[in-house]
Design a protein around this nucleic acid. Sequence first.
DNA 1: CATATTTGTAACAATTTTGTAACCTGAATG
DNA 2: CATTCAGGTTACAAAATTGTTACAAATATG
Lengths: 226, 226
Amino acid sequence: MTNDRRRILAVDDEEDILEILSFNLSGEGYKVDTCISAEEALRKDLSGYDLFLLDVMMGPISGFRLAEKIRKELALTTPVIFLTARDSENDRITGFNLGADDYLAKPFSIRELSARVKAILRRSSPEQVTMETVAGDFTVDTANKLIYSEGVPLELTRKEYEILALFICNAGKIFSRNDILSKVWGDEVIVTDRTVDVTIARIRKKMGEKGNMIKNKSGYGYYFGD
Amino acid sequence: MTNDRRRILAVDDEEDILEILSFNLSGEGYKVDTCISAEEALRKDLSGYDLFLLDVMMGPISGFRLAEKIRKELALTTPVIFLTARDSENDRITGFNLGADDYLAKPFSIRELSARVKAILRRSSPEQVTMETVAGDFTVDTANKLIYSEGVPLELTRKEYEILALFICNAGKIFSRNDILSKVWGDEVIVTDRTVDVTIARIRKKMGEKGNMIKNKSGYGYYFGD
DNA sequence: CATATTTGTAACAATTTTGTAACCTGAATG
DNA sequence: CATTCAGGTTACAAAATTGTTACAAATATG
């Protein structure tokens, strides 16, 4: 997957929270660094992170102010999720002006946390300008979200593109319906697994005669191959 | 369905709640067991479940304490969803440390329930592992559910694959029909033991000349070897 | 806000897999 | 020998899985 070990920086003045964040997100495969204060965070090189988790209420420099510095002084567009106990309109407004990508009100559940993190990171995928070419004259252009079949671009919708890209980039590997749902739809969204079948039918149709390159292994799932 | 019949254990001291949970989740295709107390739950073999739904407020042993035992004493990483009427900071914190995967505040809607259950089970499923190579030019690829004979993949169905994988990974070991039924079909499914013979005949045929590598020791069972 | 696209679901059809019964073989039993 | 028993095979039916279509719901677009 696109997951090249995404890096997350969590800043909170409560040791407990930092540990919870670190433990759980590490378990999900992220590389997590923590800071006990905004000051400590500002002494680090913040350019290498893919996401910031900032507590709003912290010592002398609040999460809002820290985000402001990150955005304006450091000119980073890295996504930010604020952790906050408060839930007032004002907080929200301030947060949005600083470009908050999401809020997580404490207390939050682990599931809630990782779902949002995953969603945000997926949305803001780094999009390397890579071009991966694979079996059977299929080319995936991840930068432009295009898949070429023998040089001709397929007219795929978003979900269709993501599934086919997943398949082509992992040719031969079997994906169960759940794998696909989790990677393409994400864990927050709840849809029937038959949705996968229908979407794949649509992709196959758009692929024309090449459609049979998406194989199904009964009882296990789908995969791409000759 | 791809659902390998996920098993859920619901523990709550209210009979009504248990019935609601059981009825609705069964209807969604899950196998649901229920316990009216933590003590009762602890008397069961808890290792076979895919998810625990635990009421927080119960008799002498609370849901939190039960989860703690499950995690620490039984060393299970099975996901847990707490059912709770309370929603205070303390509850949440306690839950975190025990690795709660989610909370569901009573009263909850059926839709909410099944959405969360589904999401949790989906995310906790992936277990793509290794490649095991074994005797007589046979290779088992457990990730893609493929078995290669001299480098050429066999076209096996689910049951066929599981039986042959079992044999190859335990070459030389004799499996009675009951062993095979238990491991491949599971203990709840009831099928004739002649079904095993038929399935093995099918595997042998697909293996071609190598088919005779599945041996039978009359009166005892089948095994794999030269 | 009206219109076009995309996405999700349900229903039904087609296909594949699985289970059973019946029949066949050969060795062991008596 | 005839008989029994275990296992091999085959053909067919039942069940499960997948493919497809049509339509409703949700989103995006102008």
